[in-house]
């Protein structure tokens, strides 16, 4: 079982290594992620949301629906814990 696990992990590692070859270098200002989509958040944040903190403006405005999902996840987890841990009350009869 452990050998199998180790094998899976090594395979995954090789796959990741393989993929990394074409990754942009660290902190490359011209990587696709820095050029596409994200510049607008920085450039328009004041104009469109009047929030200097861009992370906030994305979190609470541009992608606020994700944040709704995020809170729902916490809610789900909370209710889930109560659902799982609630013990049957044994009636003493």
């Amino acid at each position: 079982m452990r050998v199998l696990a180790l094998l899976t992990v090594i395979l995954t590692g090789i796959l990741l290594f393989f993929g990394t070859q074409d990754m942009p270098n660290w902190a490359d200002p011209n990587s696709p992620a820095s050029i596409h989509v994200s510049p607008r958040y920085i450039e328009k944040t004041l104009e469109e949301t009047a929030t200097p903190n861009v992370v906030t403006s994305v979190l609470a405005d541009y992608r606020s629906y994700d944040t709704l999902g995020e809170t729902t996840v916490i809610f789900t987890a909370g209710v889930a814990c109560m659902l799982i841990l609630r013990i049957r009350r044994r009636r003493r009869e």
Binding site: F18, G19, T20, Q21, D22, M23, P24, S31, P32, A33, S34, I35, H36, V37, S38
Partner: peptide, 24 residues
């Protein structure tokens, strides 16, 4: 995201064909 900068499916559909050779 690293290779395209986008999270939108339709947008990815447009951008990705140029990157099909990319190992990422």
């Amino acid at each position: 995201y690293v290779s395209t900068g986008s999270l939108n499916m339709a947008d990815l559909f447009q951008i990705l064909p140029d990157l099909y050779q990319s190992k990422v």
